[in-house]
Design a protein around this nucleic acid. Structure first.
Lengths: 243, 243
DNA sequence: ACCGTCGATTGGTCAGACCATCAGGCAACT
DNA sequence: AGTTGCCTGATGGTCTGACCAATCGACGGT
């Protein structure tokens, strides 16, 4: 009986929470555009009638939520929501629970094939152009035989671009999360030339299916690709664990 | 040529960021268990050799990330990771972009049927017992004809329980996110008796499929259910927009 | 045994100071 | 004239210490 359905939803809101919400609303209503620079902390604090400490707590929460970027000596800026570099509040979870990598990979397998299918239905010419550029860049790295951080970045970019082609912004964000977290894991070991070539081939097949508007094939190919990636990553993680 | 492969990846870390990571690690290594109470801010600040301000910024970020709960006058506690009430850094996004509800519903449709399928493969006796209890509670509300916040909570709890039966903790978290955000949206309008009865019937069908270990049927039924929910919610949102 | 009061504990907010970093202008050097 | 280097102001980062507000628990009265 600790909860009464009617009474007591009393939201005693911390000041910093209110500030957080208010700044979000301002961004939502277009009073603050992505890329805009916020007033300096001291000034903004005075405008809002709060102390700098409270304001700073709110700003840090917003940064963690990926809404703003804070640069010392530079200022605080509203972040591009659709941008590639997205944050990860969940990223912290991987520090908390390293055993979640397997679960994360499975969630990816549940999710991204559906995204690819929708991308095949909805991709515009611009989406396809972006994917083509990405694939071309991948091709250059493959030809040069250079796996590494550059390859990882392009790989991630490809998957996010597929999500973007699905024209579902939440999907873009979720894909950004997942790939960012997994990229962090994969950074520890370098993929072989062979792995890179195989992944590149899969990426080409996926793009082809999207380009030809074949959702089923896009979904199936993405599924196969991700299962291969899963097997590889889990092997490496296990090997690292033994090492 | 802005990137040199060797030099200059220098990561200059804010103190509050370091604190955030360190606390996460402590939780990950079991030095802090879920449910544990952290030392008081003043004490913890001294232990870490930082000021209370920096520590507070870190704690607030951790709260936003769902790692801890802060209660004025009570203390700061490590949160149950698998717990029901998880927060959402993404929740702020709905303030920023109200038009994302449709995208969110679609992501749910991509994701939860897969979760249900895996639940049908992996659910244990305890999982089923929890689902049974939840369905029974739903039945009581349906019999009493009481849609409202209580129903919404049980509805959400059902979907999260399905995710839990899939034995994928990341999936539990993602489902928690999505349902929490949507619950926030749905709170604005009350479901009809009829809607509740229909959803209840679907829930029963899903549980049946899970209970009989039939992944395909679980997936299909969940998909159908979520499409119905999507249609309903989008209608209501549109109506609200016009009102 | 129950309940209200009060005090200690703990988080919430504030104000002011100083440090670290960055951007841009200015001056000296080549 | 162009480049380099430094200086300065702006801005975020950190620290200190104080006081407010909510909570919890012990104490004493009923």
């Amino acid at each position: 009986m600790s909860e009464h359905p009617l009474l007591a939803p009393i939201e005693r809101s911390r000041l910093s929470k209110q500030i957080t919400v208010q700044l979000c609303r301002m961004i939502g209503q277009g009073q603050l555009q992505p890329g805009d620079r916020l007033p300096p902390e001291r000034e903004l604090a005075e405008l809002l009638g709060v102390s700098r400490s409270s304001l700073r707590e709110a700003l840090h929460v917003l940064e963690m939520a990926g809404i703003v970027t804070i640069r010392q000596g530079g200022g605080t800026f509203v972040r591009e929501l659709a941008g590639d570099g997205l944050l990860s509040p969940l990223l912290l979870m991987l520090d908390v629970r390293g055993d979640l990598v397997g679960d994360l990979l499975e969630v990816r397998i549940m999710f991204e094939p559906e995204t690819a299918a929708r991308a095949a239905q909805r991709a515009t010419a611009e989406d396809l152009a972006e994917l083509e550029r990405n694939i071309a860049a991948q091709g250059r790295l493959v030809a040069a035989g250079q796996p590494g951080d550059g390859w990882l970045a392009l790989d991630r970019q490809f998957h996010v671009a597929i999500a973007r082609a699905s024209h579902n912004e939440v999907a873009v964000r979720v894909t950004g999360f997942i790939t960012e977290m997994l990229q962090d894991v994969q950074r520890h070991f370098v993929a072989s030339d062979e792995r890179m070539q195989h992944a590149f081939a899969r990426h080409q097949q996926i793009l082809l299916a999207v380009n030809e508007s074949e959702p089923q094939r896009a979904r199936a190919t993405m599924l196969e690709h991700l299962r291969e990636v899963e097997r590889f990553v889990l092997c490496e993680v296990a090997a690292e664990g033994r090492g």
